[in-house]
Amino acid sequence: MNKEKIKTIAYWVITVLLGANFLFAGFIYLSRNPEVLAGMTQLGYPQYFPLILGTWKLLGGIAIIVPGFALLKEWAYAGMFFNLTSAAISSGISGLGAQHVISPLAMLAFVILSWWLRPDKYKLTPNK
């Protein structure tokens, strides 16, 4: 198997896992899960915040899984980056345990890998 084929397979495995995670999280947030609401309270966020985050998580998960739409994918990856780094920082500042800081940073590694491994057809090309 050549390098390009391996890279493509790695991209799709990582991207599907990442997208599924964001889709699942979006559903949990939108369902007003009691654990999510309790977590938002611990972080000092309002109770409507999971509805906003859940919507963006669902849309981001869809955006990175659906083929094509390079610009939309770039926005989704950026949103995931901001979401996960903000989650880690918020958890750290709020004094939650180390696992609440490490978990979003571990998921951030999947975001970076998915973005880095994406095929050329999913990358923005400069206007010529």
Rank of each mutant, 00 (worst) to 15 (best):
V111F: 06
S86D: 06
P34K: 03
I62Y: 11
R32L: 11
M40C: 06
A109G: 14
I52W: 12
E74L: 09
A70M: 02
M80P: 07
Q47H: 12
A87F: 09
S91G: 15
P67G: 07
F82N: 00
A78S: 13
W116T: 09
G61C: 13
L43S: 06
W56L: 15
I89Y: 14
A76D: 13
H100Q: 14
G68S: 04
S114D: 10
Q99T: 12
A70W: 01
L51M: 13
I65H: 03
V111L: 08
L117Q: 06
Q47I: 09
R32C: 03
T41Q: 14
W115C: 14
G39S: 08
I62S: 06
L37D: 10
I93T: 14
K73D: 06
Q47V: 09
Q42T: 04
F69V: 07
F49V: 05
F110C: 14
S90E: 05
A87Y: 07
A106S: 06
G54A: 14
Y48P: 07
L59Q: 02
A76H: 09
G97M: 05
Y45S: 05
Y77I: 11
F110Y: 12
N83A: 10
N33R: 01
G54N: 10
L105S: 11
S90H: 07
M107T: 12
V66Y: 08
F49S: 11
G60V: 05
W56S: 00
A106P: 00
P104C: 11
M107H: 02
W56P: 00
M107Y: 08
S90M: 13
G54Y: 07
M107R: 00
A87E: 09
W116C: 08
F49I: 02
A88Q: 08
L53R: 03
E74D: 15
L51W: 00
V36Y: 00
I52P: 07
L71D: 04
E35G: 15
M80D: 05
P104M: 12
T41M: 07
S103F: 09
M107N: 04
M80L: 14
A109M: 11
T85D: 04
L71C: 05
A98V: 11
L43A: 11
S90L: 13
A63D: 08
P34E: 11
E74G: 08
A88I: 05
F81K: 05
H100T: 06
L30Y: 02
V101P: 01
G92T: 10
G95D: 05
V101S: 02
I52F: 15
